[in-house]
Design a protein around this nucleic acid. Structure first.
Lengths: 254, 254
DNA sequence: CAGTGGTCTAGACCACATA
DNA sequence: ATGTGGTCTAGACCACTGA
């Protein structure tokens, strides 16, 4: 960021080489670049709105929009009477992209299929109620499903579906689409919680995944809600040596 | 969302019970509520800007700000000439909050300490270059550190620091602050990548964590960049049975 | 109390996609 | 061709807060 502004000259008339960036996008890029490069370190005050306004030769609304966006992205903090300041990057958070299982397998260049191993409707047991965070006894659907990559088991899925929240699941056989994909395509969800652990395979898991008992496995438990109501609980178990979760994070994910 | 608008009457004069929400915050809340509750399902067109404008009795800029915000949060999609539409919730992504280790331990109500087990400066080996994604040989600092919760090892940290990017690390002993905390407080970072796996403890890990060889462990590998330059690589290894990662996701994280 | 950000307006012109 | 969103302006008033 050699020189911040260059008045209006550089935006409107002669297109600035690349594409036609809107003015606020250009300002945003300039400031974000200065922050992410470290040129403007955490704690540094960035120019006042009226300074940016005159540097870029634009209205205050335009620079305000940019600063609001930076503040939403947690790159700056805005303080009345003092100005806006570069924040330190967040401790260690990350956006985990958990793909759907079929997508993962296909991305590996392997063929995919799934198989419903067990399927039972029942009144929620105490464990079911704990997992679904149900306040009262309610009908649930319990599913066990194996996902294959090529000939080998890739993932074991143990799922509970709250039939009060998703009554249409009661008669579904999950042949064309695995339970996860079926649910995603039908039920909008508004919140989810994931827990990730490493466990040693017990006999049942070892048998289902065709691995030795005690092998380290990665488990992902997910609870999903829709509008304060629990929809489904699922535990996915992967052989640890052949699966990894990847997460990327860049400040200002927008 | 019984009735969307009620003209300007309800915002300005008699404060609407709770706090004084700004107009665009109130509109935002109304629409987000309708989407998250499922009242407006994915694919549904939301009112045009000019409709909202007249419903709320405000200027177009105000509703535009709201819709822009919803679009940034991936709750709606805006299409010219067609209108704005509710998006389906993202497949399965989640925001992983990876706390710092000391914070984790303290949150468990245990006492925390760390211990530097090994510390070596060297020219980057081939493996180092791979882990740090270095193009050329460069000086690196290799650290091994044990983190304790109470009397028991809690986590094993194996870290590489790119001394070209962080020269001041060369003479640091990491006594007061563990390497991770030290780095976070000094080096702004702009991007990170995490890989999460389950492994069986090998002899070295078992020894360091005082567990049996073969025990399932959770490992987190993290690469951190600052402005296109690799800063550090770290592998954290936790005994699987006593550690879990928790991630929560709510659409519209803003 | 003075200066900053926070919000909002009533226009305007443009680009774009689609009916 | 038409209507939508995308952007921008030149003001304005207010609230907060730190000097």
């Amino acid at each position: 960021m050699a020189s911040l502004g260059s008045a209006r000259a550089s935006n409107g008339l002669h297109t600035p080489a690349k594409a036609t960036l809107s003015l606020h996008q250009r300002i945003l890029g300039d400031i974000r670049g200065a922050i992410l490069s470290g040129e403007w370190p955490p704690g540094r005050r960035i120019p006042f709105e009226h300074e940016l306004q005159s540097q870029y030769g634009c209205s205050r609304m335009t620079v305000s929009k940019v600063l609001t966006e930076l503040a939403h992205g947690k790159l700056i903090e805005r303080r009345r009477k003092s100005g806006s300041f570069v924040l330190r990057p967040p401790g260690q958070s990350a956006v985990l992209e958990i793909q759907d299982i079929k997508g993962e397998v296909v991305a590996l260049g392997l063929s995919y299929r799934h198989e419903i191993v067990a399927r039972r409707k029942r009144k929620a047991t105490l464990e079911d109620r704990d997992r679904l965070e149900l306040a009262s006894v309610a009908p649930v659907l319990s599913l066990t499903c194996r996902h294959f990559a090529g000939a080998r088991p890739f993932c074991l899925e143990e799922r509970l579906i709250n039939l009060t929240a998703v009554p249409e699941a009661a008669d579904e056989r999950f042949v064309d689409a695995a339970p996860g994909a079926w649910l995603v395509s039908r039920v909008p969800w508004s919140a989810a919680e994931h827990k990730i652990r490493a466990i040693g395979a017990d006999a049942g898991i070892a048998n289902a995944l065709e691995i030795d008992a005690g092998t380290a496995c990665l488990t992902i438990e997910r609870r999903t809600w829709r509008a304060e109501r629990s929809v489904t609980f699922v535990r996915l178990t992967y052989p640890g040596y052949e699966h990894e979760l990847v997460a990327r994070f860049t400040p200002s994910r927008r």
